[in-house]
Amino acid sequence: MAATRDVLSGLFEPERDDLRLPPERLAEAFQFLILASGRGGSSPLTSAELVDLFLHGALQGGEAG
């Protein structure tokens, strides 16, 4: 999992200045979201839904406040 986290962190790195958290933390959060999504019962989120939720949040418009 560490290797995957490193790759994810590298994908976030070019956007570091615009991110709310450091790339390393975002990589950990994304891994957690992916792992947690597979533990549900009924209908897990699709890959596209997970990425959209992670990048844009739950609110329409993508940002709170």
Rank of each mutant, 00 (worst) to 15 (best):
G10E: 14
R20K: 00
A3E: 15
G57E: 13
D52Q: 14
A3P: 04
D52K: 14
A64E: 15
L35Q: 08
E49T: 06
V7S: 06
P44D: 10
P22Y: 07
P22Q: 06
Q31F: 07
A27S: 09
G40T: 12
F12K: 13
L8K: 01
E49H: 05
G65C: 12
S37D: 15
D18W: 06
H56G: 03
P44V: 11
A48E: 13
L53V: 06
S9N: 07
T46Q: 00
L55D: 11
D52R: 15
D17H: 13
L50R: 12
Q31L: 10
E13D: 09
S43V: 10
E24A: 03
R39S: 00
G10N: 02
E15F: 15
L59W: 11
P44Y: 09
A48T: 14
L21I: 04
S42T: 14
A58T: 12
L50M: 08
R20Y: 00
G65Y: 12
A48I: 08
D18N: 11
A58G: 07
D17T: 12
G10Q: 03
L59V: 15
L21T: 05
P14A: 00
T4A: 08
D17M: 12
E24D: 04
D17I: 08
P44H: 09
S37I: 07
G65I: 11
V7T: 13
L8V: 03
T4P: 05
V51T: 03
A2E: 15
R25V: 03
F12Q: 06
E63L: 12
L21Y: 09
A3C: 02
G62R: 00
F30I: 06
Q60V: 15
L8H: 03
S47E: 06
R5F: 09
G57F: 13
L33E: 15
L26T: 00
S47P: 05
T4E: 13
E63T: 13
T4I: 00
E49F: 02
F12P: 03
L21R: 12
D52V: 10
G38C: 04
L26V: 02
V7R: 14
R16Q: 00
E49G: 05
G57L: 13
L50G: 09
E15M: 13
G38D: 06
G40K: 08
G65V: 12
S42Y: 12
A29F: 08
L53D: 00
A27H: 05
P23G: 05
L45N: 01
L59N: 14
L55S: 04
A48W: 10
